[in-house]
């Protein structure tokens, strides 16, 4: 949501596209780090539950503030490319989709590279798996968490900024995207990027089919219905193996 709104305002202020994107990504990533430093890192009790409650609170503050300080309208944003639509294999679609697909591909490849090939990516996984052990090996877990907040802010802003030409920028638009991303990762299996990608595709196709054959009103509900069914049949997602909690 922040990504989308900031991008909208920068473009409004007739800042060139590429510059506006860079500013958007980094500013959101700085906001995310700030949130971590000021709030999350200072939680009195760092149980999962209290961190969840806190992040819900922060989300409320952000979206409420944008709603009050700016407005609650949906703002259209111009396509990034000069031509509005492309046709390929006899199908015509908005040019922005090319940007979305390209950005997603770049993101997946770079995240894969980051987590599997770089030292800092591996440390991040180690902290996620066992923070105590990582601390004992001299990892500064706070720094790693701060960095992961910054990255997630960056990625979130990227998603927000490139989707707004398709979906409009609005103060409460983040929620649906977040939830659908979650549904995709449930369908694909947690902690599994390929799975999440395929899960996302499955959900997207199911949504379009239901919009075409049933009614577009229920389009947004489809993702979650699929998610619940998958959770019933395969609680750990289609592509995931069981994870174990150590005692």
């Amino acid at each position: 949501m922040l990504g989308g709104m900031i991008e909208f305002f920068l473009l409004q202020a007739s800042i060139p596209l590429y510059l506006s994107l860079i500013i958007t990504f980094f500013s959101v990533s700085i906001i995310a780090s700030f949130i971590y430093r000021v709030f999350i890192a200072n939680a009195k009790n760092s149980s999962d539950l209290s961190l969840i409650i806190m992040t819900v609170g922060i989300a409320m503050i952000l979206r409420g503030s944008v709603g009050v300080l700016i407005d609650k309208n949906a703002h259209p944003v111009k396509d990034f490319l000069n031509f509005p639509s492309v046709s390929m294999f006899g199908v015509s679609f908005a040019s922005q989709y090319i940007i979305v697909i390209a950005a997603t591909t770049i993101l997946i490849v770079s995240l894969y590279f980051y987590f599997s090939k770089t030292f800092s990516g591996k440390i991040m996984q180690a902290v996620a798996a066992n923070p105590l052990a990582a601390t004992l090996f001299g990892v500064d877990t706070k720094k790693v968490k701060l960095f992961s907040f910054a990255i997630s802010g960056f990625v979130g802003a990227m998603a927000g900024a490139i989707i707004v030409p398709i979906s409009f920028a609005q103060y409460d638009s983040g929620l649906m995207f977040g939830l659908k991303g979650f549904a995709a990762s449930v369908v694909g299996g947690f902690g599994n990027n390929t799975g999440a990608l395929i899960g996302g595709l499955c959900i997207g196709i199911a949504e379009s089919l239901s919009a075409g054959y049933v009614s577009s009103v229920y389009k947004d509900a489809v993702a979650f219905v699929i998610m619940i069914i998958i959770l019933f049949i395969r609680p750990h997602g289609i592509f995931s193996s069981k994870d174990i909690e150590r005692v």
């Binding site: 709030f39 939680a43 009790n45 806190m54 609170g57 922060i58 409320m60 409420g64 709603g67």
Partner: peptide, 16 residues
């Protein structure tokens, strides 16, 4: 308009 923001602050404040 401000109520959701206040809710957010209450949650964050309580957890901190």
């Amino acid at each position: 308009e401000f109520w959701p923001i206040a809710d957010g602050f209450l949650l964050v404040f309580a957890m901190m």
